[in-house]
């Protein structure tokens, strides 16, 4: 779901960059000295998780897990996911440079929203946590595809069919990411519920 350089119109690119910079600044404010190691190691964990490929039907997809990132990191998901995208574009050649802002916003904003909406339900624990985690995981992917579609549509009407195709192609991804996030949340609330408070507590 990376957008590449040269596809979007200038206003979309600039708006994306400004919005991403705002989100990153908010996330960095939360990252006090005590939380830098946790944010850094978790950001590495999400980077490694994004390299995992899972089979869907005849094909396979790589994980994004931005919903899970938002649940664990809150606003810090913005800088954490930005760092991942930066490393991917520089060292793997995925995505683009001028669109880094748009791509960051498209992935991190849904993460933060999911974290804000479902975080409280999951921190409460209990058997429902996995369910909310699953819904959050699926919703984050859905929102990301909608944001991508929106960025493309704003750049020109001729992008609309491509944007619709991207959305349709990601419906199975939403299902798989939802199931995976549910399993991950279900395990984490039992083993280490503190995971969902990593960016809280002593500052």
């Amino acid at each position: 779901m990376h957008i590449v350089d040269g596809a979007l119109s200038n206003p979309v690119v600039i708006t994306g960059a400004v919005a991403a910079a705002g989100g990153i600044a908010l996330g960095l404010r939360q990252m006090t000295m005590e939380r830098i190691p946790a944010a850094g190691v978790l950001s590495a964990a999400f980077f490694v998780a994004s390299l995992i490929h899972v089979p869907i039907g005849p094909s396979s997809v790589h994980l994004i897990l931005n919903g899970l990132a938002g649940l664990v990191l809150g606003w810090a998901a913005f800088p954490a996911l930005f760092v991942g995208l930066l490393l991917q574009v520089v060292f793997f050649g995925f995505g683009g440079f001028t669109v880094l802002g748009v791509n960051t916003f498209n992935i991190a904003m849904p993460a933060v929203l999911v974290g804000l909406i479902f975080g409280p339900m999951i921190r409460r624990g209990g058997p429902d946590a996995a369910l909310w985690g699953g819904i959050g995981g699926a919703l984050a992917i859905a929102l990301t595809t909608v944001f991508v579609a929106f960025a493309l549509r704003l750049s020109g009407a001729q992008f609309l069919p491509a944007a619709q195709l991207v959305f349709l192609a990601h419906i199975p991804v939403m299902v798989v990411e939802g199931l995976l996030s549910a399993a991950a949340v279900g395990l984490a609330v039992r083993v280490k519920p503190d995971l969902f408070r990593a960016m809280e507590g002593a500052a």
Binding site: L42, A45, V48, A49, I52, V54, L63, L65, L68, V72, L179, L180, S181, A182, A183, A184, V185, G186, L187, A188, V191, K192, L195
Partner: peptide, 11 residues
């Protein structure tokens, strides 16, 4: 199973 793996990785 992969979900549990991811959860464990995060923990």
């Amino acid at each position: 199973s992969v979900g549990h793996l991811v959860g464990m990785l995060l923990v």
